[in-house]
Each structure stands twice: as C-alpha cells, then as structure tokens.
Design a binder for these strands. Structure first.
Length: 269
DNA sequence: ATGGTAGTTATACTA
C-alpha cells in the first residue's frame, strides 16, 4: 500500500481552515500533521473535518501560541504528548496507526514544533535561542532511546540543517535556523537516533529544497529566499519504503497563505 | 544596512 503523511505549519488552523480543507481535497494524504495551530483545545475546528474523510483527529493546543494536531483517514491509537524544557508548550503529539491502516498499522507518528529561537543567535543574549538549543538537547536525549520499530517523525523543526537547505549558506550562517550550533545539534540528534532524512534520501545536495518563505520578503516567489525548515524523517526499517517527498509550493501562493508549505512523504509498504 | 509581514489578541508577544 501507499501511505502518505503530510506536515504543514499552518500558522493558525482557525484562520486557514479553508486552506486546510482545500489541501486535503487536492492532495488527499492519509495523514496530515499540523503545527502552530494557535488554538486552545476547546476551540479546535473539529466540525470542519466532519464528512471530509478525516474523522480521526488528535490535538494538543494552547491559547495564542504553538499547538499541534494529527488528522487521519485511519484510526489513531495511543495519543501521547511530551513536554520539553519543563514548559506546558504544545510542541509535540504522537499517535500510532491502528489495525485499519493495513501494512501501515503500528507505525508511530511523531509531530513536532521546535521553538523558532528569536532573532539573536547567542544563548547568553537571547533566552529564546537558549530555549531552542535546550529543546534540541532534550530531543537528542529522547530520540536515542525511543526509536524502536517503524516510526515517522515530521514537523517544523525550525532548522535548515544543510548548506543547500537555504538560499545562501554564507549569508545565513549567523542567522537563527542555520547557525552551526543549530545545524550540528539537529544532524547529531538525527544521526544518533538513526532517523533518515527522507527528503535528502531522494533529493541529495546540491539540489536546493525550501519549505518556508518569510512573510517579510515581498516577491517571495521571484526572490525565492527560502529555507527548508519542515522535515520528514523515518526510522531505518522504513528507509527502503520511501518513494516520494513532495513540497507543495503552490500553497504559498494561495490567498492568505501560511509562510510554510505542506511537505508530503510517500511510503510504499 | 535596515526593516520588512503576519497571527493572536486587545498589548505586547512570537514568529
């Protein structure tokens, strides 16, 4: 079977609910993992998904900031939420695909939203950057222990780890999301835990891949000063099943867009 | 070299 899992930082699920439904109609992934839903649980737009074919939804939100959700065609088991840095931030949710998913049953889905880290890339000057580095350290401590059995980790990791994950490696070396402190931390924790970067498995460097274009840059399409902040990783046992990683760039040009676009991982199981 | 935009929420804050 073909299993498709999309990750998308939606930057307010309520404001962009019509874009979410449009994407589901057009791309029809099996699972959609959202970040930055910016929505308290009691206000999550569950009813909007009724009748859409996506009846299995887990979410963890908070007022105003952060928030993650997994929206699935297949039943989801064992919703789990981890907290990092001793904060109540809604930055992770996981679930397991149920028996109805056939060959995909039992795959663990992790949906992450890593802190953006503010503007100044120095831990002593910027508590938000310190929080980001601490979050990555905790992710490293967690990842090494927990990857056993088939698993997929997706999300807005807010780091563009490789040289060709940004429009200009040299110009972004001191810009938060591409500093060596972040890129080395992310690559180290990924490697130690054995996660495979699915996008780079199929599209190795030096080909550029971007999934985010700043709101602050006019003419995003022409300037194309993007970064690859959104990732899809698979456990080693799934590496041989990766068939496609698609960046849905068109969504950046939709009305009232998110600054991130959907990224869809396709596995043949 | 700087400031640029967007969302939530109602004032700064986060990105």
């Amino acid at each position: 079977m073909r299993l498709t899992v999309t990750t998308w930082n939606i930057n307010s699920v309520r404001l962009r609910i019509e874009s979410v439904l449009r994407f589901l109609r057009e791309a029809q992934p099996d699972v959609l993992c959202l970040q930055e839903t910016k929505c308290p649980d009691e206000l999550f737009p569950l009813k909007a998904f009724k009748g859409s074919g996506y009846e299995h939804i887990v979410f963890a939100g908070q007022k105003g900031y952060n928030g993650v959700a997994i929206i699935s065609r297949f039943p989801l088991l064992t919703r789990d939420v981890m907290s990092f840095c001793e904060r109540a931030d809604a930055r992770h949710i996981s679930a397991v695909l149920g028996p109805e998913a056939g060959p995909a049953a039992g795959i663990v889905l992790h949906d992450f939203y890593v802190p953006a880290g503010g503007d100044v890339p120095h831990r002593d000057l910027n508590p938000k950057f310190a929080h980001k580095l601490d979050f990555l350290s905790e992710l490293r401590a967690w990842g090494g222990r927990r990857v056993a059995g088939p698993a997929i980790l997706v999300g807005d990791l807010n780091v563009a780890p490789l040289e060709h994950d940004v429009w200009s490696h040299k110009q972004l070396l001191d810009v938060v999301s591409h500093t060596p402190a972040e890129t080395e931390a992310l690559e180290t924790l990924r490697g130690e835990a054995g996660w495979i970067d699915a996008a780079r498995l199929l599209t190795p460097e030096p080909e550029k891949i971007y999934t985010w274009w700043s709101y602050r840059s006019p003419n995003w399409e022409l300037a194309n000063k993007g970064r690859r902040l959104d990732h899809a990783w698979v456990s080693p046992d799934l590496a041989g099943t990766v068939r496609r990683v698609e960046v849905f760039r068109a969504a950046r040009g939709w009305d009232k867009p998110s600054d991130h676009v959907p990224v869809t991982l396709a596995l043949e199981l």
